[in-house]
């Protein structure tokens, strides 16, 4: 089983600090290709910070510093020769709150490819992305409507479609369902099952059941320290660490 897995992202001894305060401490874990890896842990444990470092979104935060090695295939994500824009082309991200552009549904999906020199059939690309995000049937007759008129769950699926239109290798999701109702959440979870056929997904979640349902690997962080990493089933049914057990059984957090 283990040797079937190919590591796409190698997180090695990574520390991240904000203004001198350590948020992530010496975390090492692999992200396997075409698997879903969940990062769980109590609020403020550094899981979002760690996730954002994977496609260099922390670059925009002033005073954020990082050490350690982050390898994407064979390249060092933080080498000076690595272009952060190219990193984000290949490693997409879906945020906690749906944040569509205040433009039409079509433009939301098409903007990414269009600014990156995509010159194929844009209509096809948009339709494909919207279909993958299970949104096509709901919006196909009103692609020119403002994306802001969609419901929260639809907006979040639109954000996923926007990311998929870039055809990234890895999709990072930062608590993608935390602002959504249970029905929308269920739809996005269904979507994750389909997406993991073709994409590597890293998902940060507060929702333990969600992590248990959708992921194959789980990392548990507390106070910036990686407490446990392993098969999701192992982490949830026979955790090696007592803190993990207390957290996944809901005794704290």
């Amino acid at each position: 089983m283990q040797d079937e897995n190919r590591t796409v992202l190698d997180i090695n001894d990574v520390c991240i600090s904000y203004a001198g305060e350590l948020a992530v401490r010496n975390v090492s874990l692999p992200i396997y290709e075409k698997k879903i890896t969940a990062i769980i842990g109590p609020s403020g444990c550094g899981k979002s910070t760690l996730l954002r470092s994977l496609n260099r979104m922390n670059d925009f935060i002033h005073g954020c510093e990082q050490s350690g090695y982050l390898g994407f295939h064979e390249t060092d994500l933080y080498a000076s020769s690595t272009d952060p824009v190219e990193v984000r082309l290949r490693i997409g991200m879906v945020f906690q709150r749906p944040n569509p552009f205040p433009k039409s549904i079509y433009r939301n999906v098409a903007w990414g490819p269009s600014i990156n020199g995509f010159n194929g059939e844009m209509d096809e690309r948009v339709e494909k992305a919207l279909r993958q995000a299970a949104l096509w049937d709901e919006v196909k007759d009103r692609l020119q409507d403002s994306a802001l008129n969609l419901s929260g769950g639809q907006q979040q699926r639109l954000c996923i479609a926007r990311t998929l239109a870039m055809e990234p290798e890895i999709i990072l999701m930062d608590e993608p369902c935390s602002a959504l109702d249970p029905v929308s959440t269920a739809r996005i979870e269904d979507l994750l099952f389909e997406l993991r056929e073709n994409y590597t997904i890293v998902i940060v979640t507060h929702n333990m059941q969600q992590a248990a349902r959708v992921s194959q690997y789980t990392a548990f962080l507390e106070n910036g320290v990686l407490i446990e990493y392993g098969d999701t089933e192992d982490v949830f049914t026979r955790p090696a660490n007592r803190r993990t057990e207390e957290y996944v059984t809901g005794r704290f957090g």
Partner: peptide, 27 residues
Amino acid sequence: VPSSLRQAAYAVGATRWQVIRAHVLPS
């Protein structure tokens, strides 16, 4: 201009200028 908008644009591989031109200035 909400930073979530900038982040969304950066996350689909936009350069700083593209983010400013297409999203920050219009908003």
